[in-house]
Design a protein around this nucleic acid. Structure first.
Length: 421
RNA sequence: GUGGGUGUAGCUCAGGUGGUUAGAGCACCAGAUUGUGGCUCUGGGGGCCGUGGGUUCAAGUCCCAUCAUCCACCCCA
């Protein structure tokens, strides 16, 4: 128990941390190119923010939040998603006064009390972007392309973009009623989950994975058929923008997202490498800011699951660049004390070379073995004879070539050798 | 929340029908080589066999419970 990470969490060990750093760097670089600035918000917020922002009847809020009272009696919640906190920060700091639209990105841990399984954790990480202040269809296309660009940059190819429009509150309500009417007669034949969805979120019935339910919904009126003229026009322009950019996409009229705040454009990127699990989800939320108490500004964003991205890369056999190896290992021989090695190592480090040494008082043989395992490129040997003559042995670990150099010239010599290899 | 699989060394796993001091490979440490890595050989350290209870003369092995973990559903990234 004491030596076990809590359920649904995991340690990112040094080897894997290198891969995370790589992903984070790629995300930051893509955002720089697209003109998105980073924003960092707290990992916990007032519980009320998520109740209002995400929606009280959503699964995320109803049964997956880490909510607790702090010592002052306030109810706070570990953020289950990134959009509501970013909206809150936008409103709190009056960022509406800055040049519009505002384009930001975030990257960090999210928390959901869920049963863990492949690609699903209780603490997981999302990279996401948000755009506030523009309802323009080209923004919809831009954020989708941003996500696609990020994935491509990592070398992933086995994914596809699925898009849909869930309309505005007005036409969505009309579509819901229309669908309920259509399904009312056959409701008894659906699975229990779908019967529950009938009242809660009937559009989701269209998204059921059971074949029987799928068959029952054949010919049912889909959201896209019930869009009001402005929403239909918006969706058409989003598709045209994607096409103009040469992006392939699938219009999936069954696609419904689980968060209440979405309007109009909804999209997912699913990965073939993860048996079609979604790796990214997002959409437009034109009334969320007002709902949280701000101006009636439109917004849009997405979130990419970092763990899932890493899993997809692994499944596709993509290996991020290897970790940096130490450049120099300093060994001692004979009766030379360890502090001589430490002195040399420090000189090298302060001149910009990464250097390391043995800390277990091991023999020369074991020190070479250690240097080899760490992947050091060069080895310095400080022995009694060399030391008394003010020299040191420099060995190229790959070729095994050795030379004796004056200690005064050691740093310079090592730097030159490293440049050559 | 529902359903299924699996828990033996740091890792991957052996341990027919219960039977003495629980094994292998990899990894780790040391030696062969008293000052020279990768290969090889030799030796060594490491295990409440997930936990608790039950059956039995005897349980890693059988039964029950529990916890953990993985997979799927639900939901979502």
């Amino acid at each position: 128990m004491l030596t076990k990470a809590p359920r649904g969490t995991k340690d990112i060990l040094p080897a894997e941390a290198e891969r995370w750093k790589y992903l984070e760097k790629q995300a930051a670089e893509v955002c720089r190119l697209f003109g998105y600035a980073e924003i960092r918000t707290p990992v916990f917020e007032h519980t009320e923010l998520f109740l209002r922002g995400v929606g009280e009847v959503t699964d995320i809020v109803a049964k997956e939040m880490y909510t607790f009272k702090d010592r002052g009696g306030r109810s706070v919640t570990l953020r289950p998603e990134g959009t509501a906190p970013v909206v809150r920060a936008f409103l709190e700091h009056g960022l509406a006064a800055e040049a519009q639209p505002l384009k930001v990105y975030y990257l960090g841990p999210m928390f959901r009390y869920d049963r863990p399984q492949a690609g699903r954790y209780r603490q997981f990480h999302q990279f996401g972007v948000e755009v506030f202040g523009s309802g323009d269809p080209t923004v919809d296309a831009e954020v989708m392309v941003l996500a696609l660009t990020f994935l491509r940059r990592l070398g992933l190819t086995g994914f596809s973009l699925h898009i849909n429009s869930v309309g505005c509150p007005a036409c969505r309500e009309a579509a819901r009623n229309c669908l309920r009417e259509h399904l009312a007669a056959s409701l008894g034949q659906f699975c229990p989950d779908c019967v529950e969805r009938y009242d809660k979120n009937p559009l989701r019935i269209m998204d059921c994975k059971l074949e029987r339910c799928r068959e029952l919904t054949e010919g049912a009126p889909v959201m896209l058929d019930n869009l009001c003229p402005p929403c239909a026009e918006h969706f058409r322009e989003v598709r045209e923008a994607l096409t103009a950019l040469g992006e392939q996409y699938v219009v999936d009229s069954r696609l419904v997202r689980g968060l209440d705040y979405y309007t109009r454009t909804a999209f997912e990127i699913v990965s073939a490498d993860l048996s079609s699990q979604s790796i990214c989800g997002g959409g437009r939320y034109d009334h969320l800011l007002k709902q949280i108490g701000g101006p009636d500004l439109p917004g849009i964003g997405f979130a990419v699951g970092m763990e899932r991205t890493l899993l997809a890369m692994e499944a596709a056999g993509i290996a991020p660049p290897a970790a940096g190896k130490p450049e120099v290992f300093v060994a001692t021989a004979g009766s030379v004390p360890g502090r001589e090695a430490l002195k040399t190592v420090m000189e090298l480090r302060l001149s910009g070379l990464s250097a390391d040494k043995d800390y277990l008082g091991r023999g020369l043989r074991a020190q070479l073995k250690a240097a080899d395992r760490k992947g050091a490129k060069l080895l310095v040997i400080l022995g009694d004879e060399e030391l008394s003559r003010g020299q040191a042995v420099v060995r190229d670990m790959q070729s095994g070539r050795q030379e004796t150099v004056p200690r005064a010239e050691l740093t310079e010599r090592l730097a030159r050798l490293l440049r050559e290899c």
